[in-house]
Nucleic acid binder design. Sequence first.
DNA 1: TAGCTTTGCTTGATATCGCAAGCAATAGAT
DNA 2: ATCTATTGCTTGCGATATCAAGCAAAGCTA
Lengths: 114, 114
Amino acid sequence: MDGYGQYFKALRESKGATLREVERQTDVSNAYLSQLESGKVKQPSPNTLYRLAKFYQVSYEMLMEKVGYPVSKSNALPKDQSISSAAKNKLGEISNEEEVELLQYLKFIRNRKS
Amino acid sequence: MDGYGQYFKALRESKGATLREVERQTDVSNAYLSQLESGKVKQPSPNTLYRLAKFYQVSYEMLMEKVGYPVSKSNALPKDQSISSAAKNKLGEISNEEEVELLQYLKFIRNRKS
DNA sequence: TAGCTTTGCTTGATATCGCAAGCAATAGAT
DNA sequence: ATCTATTGCTTGCGATATCAAGCAAAGCTA
């Protein structure tokens, strides 16, 4: 039903921040953040996305694209590219052990579908 | 008080188009276009701006900026991150949904010890 | 146990987007 | 002069973004 709600939640929790912590740093209310993460928001404004992008240290354009806004240039870019960079940002500090587990889990995910 | 309203009107008139002509080509209602040109709209959505940009043959980003949305002129993120190229290669093609699951699983891994 | 604090969440309110429908003025055609 | 189509515009409305306030559960602390 919702797509990027889970993503924002994962972003926040991977940073170990609370809703109110994000609120303090971004001036986006914890009420709205909660709705955002539970899929009750359709398209947060670019202004909001920009604040979150800076706090979570991910690409603003990537967030724009993720919530469905047109992003002129990256129309030509494959979608996996921006996702890859997002993953790179979030997974950039993983240890070798964690990497192995993630890769195994990725296999598990993919086998689960077919 | 109205900044870009005049601009949109100038764009349309320079093309010799009527409100309803623009409506036909962009699926933006003539009612809304009228409000837009008379400064009664604060921030038209990126979706709307994109349609108008294409019709008027101007830059989408320029319109975004004109209306007051943040436009990251320079990428806030470095291109190359200190991630193992192995993981980068293997994770480079993960999908949207897979990324979410991986981030959640990574959080699970890290909390498993405590 | 009782009392603060934190955390995620819900709810009511406000503001804006964007449109369908309609209106007054103008232009053209007969 | 009358009819018809076009044009710009206003208005009322549903949908959505965003927040302030508050609430219940859980965690600390005394």
